[in-house]
């Protein structure tokens, strides 16, 4: 059983919008150096270090790993684990971290190669290209300002009217009311009536006096 792709609430909250990178590299110097270069990228990366590829598959970490950066010497004799991982999670990008000679047959298995002589710019450029090449859910960056009609609906909601009552009062369909409500909670991040009340008052959309509290 592998939960790599199960979207878990907690994980989402812990690592939303960041890319998870697993690094398998035995040299401390190389590892630290790579980490420092990745930090310079100003990208939101979560880095996890592993001693071996087996460890990744054995521990079954379920936070979704996006990229595995690995020293090919560590998988050369261990292509079985590597293949299992590839099968389980085909969306992982495999990056080789190369500082000695490897045959083409080995390197061709990787999506990207980092050479020890690469500049930090090119490493980060290639990495972000790799990660962005996966279609990610684009979070809508719409304006948070409520439209006039949404504000009308908000006011009625805060006064405790039901969807049906709001529809009648504003002369729109229930369906439209619901879609306005959806937009309101998306834009404000608030769903509950009491939360919306606080929102409306602090934004001076309604006055306290107009509410019979």
């Amino acid at each position: 059983m592998c939960l790599w792709f199960v979207k878990l609430k907690g994980v989402e909250a812990l690592s939303r919008s960041s890319s998870n990178i697993a690094i398998v590299e035995s040299s401390q110097i190389v590892y630290e150096g790579l980490v420092n270069i990745l930090i310079k990228s100003h990208q939101h990366y979560q880095l996890y270090r592993f001693d071996s590829i087996e460890e990744i598959s054995a521990t079954r970490i379920n936070c979704k790993i996006d990229v595995i950066i690995v020293n090919p010497s560590l998988i050369q004799f261990n292509s079985k684990d590597c293949n299992t991982l590839k099968r389980i999670n085909s969306s992982v990008h495999w990056v080789a971290l190369v500082y000695s000679f490897y045959g083409k047959d080995i390197l061709s298995q990787f999506d990207e190669i980092i050479q020890i002589s690469d500049t930090s710019e090119s490493i980060n450029q290639n990495l972000s290209k790799l990660i962005n090449s996966t279609p990610v859910e684009i979070e809508s960056s719409q304006k948070e300002q409520l439209s006039e009609r949404e504000t009308d609906v908000l006011v009625q909601l805060v006064h405790g009217l039901s969807n049906k009552e709001i529809a009648d009062k504003l002369n729109i369909s229930i369906h439209t009311v619901m879609s306005h409500r959806k937009n309101i909670s998306q834009k404000t991040g608030i769903k509950s009536q009491s939360g919306l009340t606080i929102y409306a008052i602090s934004n001076k959309i309604i006055s306290l006096d107009s509410l019979a509290l």
Binding site: G189, I190, K191, S192, G195, I198, S202, N203
Partner: peptide, 21 residues
């Protein structure tokens, strides 16, 4: 229950950070 508890907490953070000044 869990979902409710978490979404209310999310609302609170939103109110404090984005809306209440």
């Amino acid at each position: 229950h869990h979902t409710d508890i978490e979404s209310k907490l999310f609302e609170l953070k939103n109110l404090f950070i984005k809306h209440l000044s």
